[in-house]
């Protein structure tokens, strides 16, 4: 219980950034808060043993997001498929609300590894080595995730522009 004060200080300083990062990963504010809360609860008993807590918390949140679908599928009964859920999310959140709704909707359709790598690169500004640590993979794999993700987005945007021109 001696780690209460540093833990409180860290949460007060980084909670907003952690929730924003989790929101960009899962596109759900409630789920992002749940991810951050679950990670912080799990790390609190051994908080004093962490020399650099922030990278470890970021990695834990990323892993929680990547493994969430596995555990979610074992805990809950999924009555609809993922693509239907994405369509429902697109309907519930009109494209006119966000700053770039078209790009945001295509970003949601990326695989989880690619999406996490893109968010870590273009939101957090991390390099390949840092992203590789967080994703527990090699830097070359990170580059592959980012390049494939950007290619998917570019193809989707080009197709959307072609449909608009018609």
């Amino acid at each position: 219980m001696t780690s209460a004060e540093p833990f409180d200080r860290y949460v007060a300083e980084h909670q907003a950034g952690l929730v924003r990062y989790a929101y960009l990963l899962c596109h759900s504010y409630a789920l992002g808060e749940d991810l951050v809360q679950e990670v912080l609860i799990r790390l609190y008993p051994r908080w004093a043993a962490l020399a650099e807590p922030h990278p470890y918390v970021m990695r834990s949140i990323t892993n929680e997001y990547l493994s969430w679908r596995r555990r979610w599928s074992t805990r809950h009964i999924q009555v609809v498929r993922d693509d239907v859920l994405h369509l429902r999310a697109a309907v519930l959140e009109p494209p006119g609300d966000g700053p770039d709704p078209e790009l945001w909707s295509h970003l949601l359709l990326l695989p989880r590894q690619q999406r996490a790598a893109v968010v870590l690169r273009y939101y957090e500004g991390y390099g390949d080595a840092e992203i590789a640590v967080l994703l527990s993979c090699k830097p070359a794999t990170v580059r592959g995730h980012i390049s494939r993700g950007l290619a998917t987005l570019r193809t989707a945007l080009t197709a959307a522009e072609g449909e608009e021109q018609r």
Binding site: Q15, R20, L103, W104, V118, Y122
Partner: peptide, 27 residues
């Protein structure tokens, strides 16, 4: 093309994250 997409991604993620206000520690 890639640079334009990267800039769009950076601005999109920054604006979207700025719109998120945590309930317990936000302004």
């Amino acid at each position: 093309m890639t640079d334009d997409l990267e800039r769009r991604l950076q601005s999109l993620l920054a604006d979207t994250a700025a719109a998120v206000e945590p309930a317990l520690s936000g302004p």
